[in-house]
Amino acid sequence: MRAPLGDFDDARPAIECLDLLPAPVAAALRAWQSPVPAGEVVYVDSDPEVADTAAFVATYGQDLSSTSANLVVLAGKRGGDVRLAACLVPSQARLDVNGVARRRLDVRKVSFAPRETAVGETGMEYGGITPVGLPAAWPLLVDASLTALPWVLVGSGARRGKLILPGKALAELPGAEVVEDLAR
């Protein structure tokens, strides 16, 4: 199989390589419920040493710079209550943490969740956290520009490997809310 974007030696339907994915990601693909079939989600093998966006794009193709997305885990506070959420934004943009994200999460203060919290709560590796398989109670804010793309590259839940899925599938993920101008 050839990946729909990028230059990867190994691309397969993600549903056929669940053993390569962290448990929450594999479980989400097994339980996939979307108008976009699970078989359209592609797993591409990649070197974990070049998992960060700039190095990844240099290694696997410049077309990935405009089709990659980063997931950020936020911790919002209102009173003594801490709310965790995920935000998916284009990799070339910056998340509007203290504006749009804070208002959408209805919290007074918001910050990036500590690494230990993000990893512990998701069951995924830091630097590879993906919107596929997030905790069910979490809101997932998705920048609207991503849903308009034919294909979007996201983490696989591990630093090795990535997932490529149709942009429209992002709006169908559990807890997803498409948000205009989440990134700037």
Rank of each mutant, 00 (worst) to 15 (best):
residue 1 M to A: 03
residue 1 M to E: 04
residue 5 L to K: 02
residue 9 D to G: 11
residue 10 D to A: 03
residue 12 R to I: 06
residue 13 P to A: 07
residue 17 C to T: 07
residue 19 D to Q: 13
residue 19 D to C: 11
residue 20 L to E: 11
residue 21 L to A: 06
residue 22 P to W: 04
residue 24 P to T: 03
residue 26 A to D: 00
residue 26 A to Y: 04
residue 26 A to E: 09
residue 29 L to Y: 01
residue 31 A to D: 07
residue 31 A to T: 00
residue 32 W to V: 01
residue 32 W to M: 02
residue 33 Q to I: 12
residue 34 S to H: 05
residue 34 S to G: 03
residue 36 V to N: 12
residue 37 P to Q: 05
residue 38 A to C: 00
residue 39 G to S: 11
residue 39 G to W: 12
residue 39 G to C: 14
residue 39 G to F: 15
residue 41 V to G: 04
residue 41 V to D: 04
residue 42 V to M: 02
residue 42 V to N: 00
residue 43 Y to N: 06
residue 43 Y to C: 01
residue 44 V to A: 08
residue 45 D to G: 15
residue 46 S to M: 02
residue 48 P to S: 07
residue 48 P to V: 12
residue 50 V to L: 08
residue 52 D to V: 13
residue 53 T to Q: 05
residue 53 T to N: 09
residue 54 A to L: 15
residue 55 A to L: 12
residue 57 V to S: 04
residue 59 T to L: 04
residue 59 T to D: 01
residue 60 Y to K: 06
residue 63 D to I: 05
residue 65 S to W: 10
residue 67 T to Q: 15
residue 67 T to S: 13
residue 67 T to W: 13
residue 71 L to A: 07
residue 71 L to I: 01
residue 72 V to F: 09
residue 75 A to M: 10
residue 76 G to W: 06
residue 77 K to H: 15
residue 79 G to I: 03
residue 79 G to C: 02
residue 79 G to L: 02
residue 79 G to K: 04
residue 81 D to Y: 11
residue 83 R to A: 11
residue 86 A to G: 02
residue 86 A to V: 02
residue 87 C to S: 11
residue 89 V to R: 12
residue 90 P to M: 06
residue 91 S to G: 09
residue 91 S to M: 08
residue 91 S to K: 03
residue 93 A to E: 12
residue 95 L to K: 13
residue 95 L to G: 10
residue 96 D to R: 09
residue 97 V to M: 11
residue 99 G to K: 03
residue 101 A to H: 02
residue 101 A to T: 06
residue 101 A to V: 00
residue 103 R to S: 11
residue 103 R to A: 12
residue 103 R to L: 09
residue 103 R to V: 12
residue 104 R to Y: 10
residue 107 V to E: 07
residue 107 V to Y: 09
residue 107 V to R: 01
residue 108 R to F: 07
residue 110 V to E: 05
residue 110 V to A: 04
residue 115 R to M: 15
residue 115 R to H: 14
residue 115 R to D: 14
residue 124 M to V: 05
residue 126 Y to R: 05
residue 126 Y to S: 06
residue 126 Y to W: 09
residue 128 G to M: 07
residue 128 G to S: 01
residue 129 I to Y: 03
residue 132 V to T: 10
residue 133 G to I: 10
residue 134 L to M: 00
residue 135 P to T: 11
residue 136 A to K: 13
residue 137 A to H: 10
residue 137 A to T: 15
residue 138 W to M: 10
residue 138 W to S: 13
residue 140 L to M: 14
residue 144 A to W: 08
residue 146 L to W: 12
residue 146 L to M: 06
residue 147 T to Y: 06
residue 148 A to V: 15
residue 148 A to W: 09
residue 149 L to T: 12
residue 151 W to D: 13
residue 151 W to F: 08
residue 152 V to E: 02
residue 153 L to E: 05
residue 154 V to C: 13
residue 155 G to K: 02
residue 157 G to Y: 07
residue 160 R to W: 00
residue 160 R to S: 01
residue 160 R to C: 01
residue 161 G to I: 04
residue 162 K to M: 05
residue 162 K to I: 05
residue 162 K to G: 04
residue 163 L to V: 00
residue 165 L to D: 01
residue 166 P to K: 00
residue 167 G to K: 15
residue 167 G to N: 11
residue 167 G to E: 11
residue 174 P to S: 12
residue 176 A to P: 08
residue 176 A to F: 09
residue 177 E to I: 13
residue 179 V to C: 03
residue 180 E to K: 14
residue 181 D to E: 15
residue 182 L to I: 08
residue 183 A to C: 01
residue 183 A to F: 02
